[in-house]
Design a protein around this nucleic acid. Structure first.
Lengths: 269, 269
DNA sequence: CCAAAAGTGTTTTGTCTACACCCATGT
DNA sequence: ACATGGGTGTAGACAAAACACTTTTGG
């Protein structure tokens, strides 16, 4: 399929190369004959539609000072000065999971973490820069693992998650006391992550991802309370969790307790 | 930002142009000087990466002859001759939900249906034609609504869903008795839909979407059994469902029953 | 009356909750 | 010893499962 032939004057070649990269894909043959350029596209074309950009946004959650907190990044670009979730575009030869791993490394300097796909947000107007479809993931890490990274960088912060009454959007409370609404539709993404996490607490061991390898039952209960935003009864919680079989008692006791030290558990299996 | 300079020999320029369109986006300046080509990229753009195509794939489920069945479409293009899920590309100014609505109309002639986003599949090699990221949705409709559409078209079929033992992939059994593995990663998408649906039966009223407005408790039980793939105890099922408060008794009785007619229910609220 | 399916009671089992209580430790 | 939080026992509420049973229809 012949797309066109163009004279080799620098100015117009610039514009046309842009149009090409936007609309067409597949093997593009560029041939030179007699000083002019001929551009062809090979037959089986994937899509003749203009393509949206695809990004991954990351809801990196942790428990900081007993509160469910999220990693926010300050956008200093011309688009927005607000806080937002860390994110980035999906490279052309990169799986979505690979994009998430790269973002974890680049933005939070984490070599790995528990991550799960959350939801894909695709409103055409969700990003003022243009059409960006965002596949949101959430990640859970123990706060200790973020310590170094947060101190090293001035445009990263942990903010406490504040879910609205209808659970449709969430704001963050920064350590300086200011309440911030996240940029774009990130408040909605954050709320979706918290709702998902709340739902998973009952039937999965996700809470363990927010704790160190050895932990006490009280610590796990505090994690659940931080996520659910409500206090839980201690005896009921202990028995429910132990009945699930997710935990294995180590026999070791915590150190540095003011009173009776609690037993340390680790994940079973 | 200078990307590189290349000698204008036809053979290698072809390959390099391909690499360019894959890796870079934004304004690309192409200049010619002294018979060579210089390629530059302009600074601030939405995304400096080549964009993947974004598609929606639709898992349209229904209960046909008491079995969980899925709408499959025969691909007659050069890419594949297998059966696949109906799908299509997301247009540049179209929300994901709008794409789903359009696909429902175009592929199944349905003006509306219960739909929910399922998962986004983004392995770079999942489509042999190139990089396609697919946002999968599942839809539930009463089989009666598909009747006319299926008869009218030769490349559409309902196939019984057969989930593998590990629940990681699903095949379809067509009415001619042949067992078909769906094209691309659609077997994995289908399995994901069935797992999701099974999980939702317990805590949501999704089963009602697969029935007409008036239905008997036995019919609802058969829907649940078809989705779960196992028989359920009648008294337990009745009480559980009625306790949930999703249903409202109408007082009417079914007609045409061979024996005692059952009461008709409809959704509450 | 009989066959077949609708619909209900009753008992048992197991899980979650609430509350009371004992246990171990640092001061 | 005692304050404090860790950890356990018991009783009631509630939901689900198993089983037997009654009811209603067409023939």
């Amino acid at each position: 399929m012949l797309i066109g032939t163009y004279p080799p004057d620098g100015q117009s070649a610039s514009v046309r190369a842009e149009a090409l990269t936007n609309i067409h894909r597949g093997y593009i043959h560029v041939e030179y004959y007699g000083g002019a350029m001929k551009v062809e596209k090979e037959t089986p074309s994937l899509s003749d539609f203009a393509r949206p950009s695809v990004a991954v946004d990351l809801v990196l959650l942790t428990i900081d000072a007993g509160r469910l907190s999220v990693l926010a990044i300050r956008r200093d670009d011309a688009v927005s000065e607000a806080w937002a979730l860390p994110g980035g575009f999906v490279h052309i030869q990169e799986s979505l999971d690979d994009t998430v791993s790269r973002l974890l490394r680049e933005k939070a300097r984490l070599p790995d973490a528990f991550v799960e796909q959350l939801y894909t947000f695709g409103r055409p107007d969700r990003d003022p820069r243009g059409r960006v479809i965002s596949v949101a993931y959430y990640a859970l890490v123990h706060a200790e693992r973020l310590r170094g990274c947060l101190e090293g960088s001035r445009n990263l912060a942990l903010g406490q998650v504040r879910l609205s009454a209808n659970q449709k959007c969430a704001s963050v409370l920064l350590s300086d006391g200011t309440m911030e609404r996240l940029a774009f539709d990130h408040d909605e993404i954050l709320a979706t992550a918290v709702r998902r996490l709340r739902g998973k607490l009952d039937y999965s061991a996700v809470g363990l991802e927010l704790l160190p390898k050895l932990f006490t039952l009280r610590q796990l209960q505090e994690v659940h309370e931080a996520i659910l935003g409500e206090p839980l009864a201690k005896p009921a919680f202990r028995r429910k969790i132990l009945d699930r079989g997710w935990l294995k008692a180590t026999g070791k006791l915590e150190t540095g307790a003011a009173f009776r030290p609690a037993e340390l558990y680790r994940r079973a299996g």
